[in-house]
Amino acid sequence: QEVVNPEDYIKHPLQNRWALWFFKNDKSKTWQANLRLIAKFDTVEDFWALYNHIQLSSNLISGCDYSLFKDGIEPMWEDERNKRGGRWLITLSKQQRRADLDRFWLETLLCLVGEAFDDHSDEVCGAVVNIRTKGDKIAIWTADYANKESVTHIGRVYKERLGVPAKVIIGYQSHADTATKSGSTTKNKFVV
């Protein structure tokens, strides 16, 4: 009788079930109506099946977003799990769309589904990529801006995973500050 290795036929379960959302900017519709759930997955294999099936971020038209959030958390500030939180924000230059955008977004996804932030991964809510003419943005959203230890751990690991040079500073901003800002920039609660 042949002994079968479970590794060969059981999909690799993720710690969390994740939901991928797509936003397409149609000004004739409300913000919420422009937001669509694409699919949910909870295994390594199903993550790749989805990732390989959809367009790269760099192929999306301006105004579109992808969001990957833990199942049960909606990709908006108002969600109960997001409203006290904030984001580590990566702002990209126009040139970086070709050079870095798809690589950074995939690395972000791998950090999330692989639970790269150790015990602090529980503080992660999701991540968003915004495709914009003036410059694309990628962010990891966490649950509580006041949880300094988790927020800074996540920021340090994330910066290293993206290969951002030490001299380049990335900032963490609370959603409350982003929502109430008056100018075009939001003050950073933390930097790494």
Binding site: K11, H12, Q15, E45, W48, E107, G114, E115, D118, S121
Partner: peptide
């Protein structure tokens, strides 16, 4: 225990034949 996967492990599955 948390199910953690490092990047190389995850990348190794990108082009695996689909599970049946």
């Amino acid at each position: 225990k948390k199910k953690q996967y490092n990047r190389d492990f995850l990348l190794g599955f990108q082009f695996m034949p689909a599970c049946v």
